[in-house]
Design a protein around this nucleic acid. Sequence first.
DNA 1: AACAAATGATTGCGTGCGCAACTATCTGTC
DNA 2: GACAGATAGTTGCGCACGCAATCATTTGTT
Lengths: 151, 151
Amino acid sequence: MASPRWLDSDEMKAWRSYITASVDLMKALEHDVAPHGITMGDYQLLAMISEAPDRRLRLCDLADALRLTRSGLTRRMAGVIDGGLVARVQDDKDRRVAFAELTTKGWNLLKKVAPVHLASVRALMIDHLSRTEIKAIGSAFAKIGENLRTA
Amino acid sequence: MASPRWLDSDEMKAWRSYITASVDLMKALEHDVAPHGITMGDYQLLAMISEAPDRRLRLCDLADALRLTRSGLTRRMAGVIDGGLVARVQDDKDRRVAFAELTTKGWNLLKKVAPVHLASVRALMIDHLSRTEIKAIGSAFAKIGENLRTA
DNA sequence: AACAAATGATTGCGTGCGCAACTATCTGTC
DNA sequence: GACAGATAGTTGCGCACGCAATCATTTGTT
């Protein structure tokens, strides 16, 4: 761990602009969905469930997908259940497991908010980038993520 | 806001891999500095102050740089002041303003942790990327950040 | 000089979430 | 079939931080 090579100017620019822009970007995305009464956390939860078969997902798998601990998910679920967006359904094969299932209300909300969110992602990020940059970001973060998952 | 163009597969890959890898990356960086008794938030605070003239910075400017509200900064300062890493120095020109100043202890800690953090950034991100990817990330996030700052 | 508006910082309160401990259920081994 | 260990989910507690309200000080207008 003794003095690894310092970052050169390209690396430094990449690192710094990535960090600061990411924080700002997350806040801006949050700001854009807020008028619809949900947080980005809720949105991602709804989106994740909506992609699962039958629009239901084991809490366990949902927690992993959202990068939450099980305890964190329990608390977030409380919010969306209270809002009537998601139902908690007990499995009767394995009585330990429960599913999060999108309600009609949740599905309708998601259909309404998804285009808004998509427009944000475009306006704040994607539409500023060249094809080269998009491909580079895709491959770069895929490698970074892959490495983190296996390490 | 009616149905903007959906993301094509390159865009989708860029967006998804960016989001998930970023969350994982932040947690991993946090994990790597934790053994030294600080959080990434503290580290960034120390690093930011260390780059300022006289290693002191107005709280106000520090909050902006760290993307914290003034209230958030007040609370984070409490931690690092308590740890003896930073001192709160009152200005006597303008008695509203206070500075955060690195103590010797804070400076020594930063000198110790900086190489560790640098090694993390390399091992978890930079060293996995080609020159092209690094330059693309630099230019892409610079544009994204610039846009967010002016909008 | 007086006072309204701006600026810098702090505090009370609420939210989100992680950790560790706990309960309930299932699985594998003997 | 009994029991150790694994797996799913919840709960108590604590920390970080944002918002709105507040206080102190400075600046700009007249």
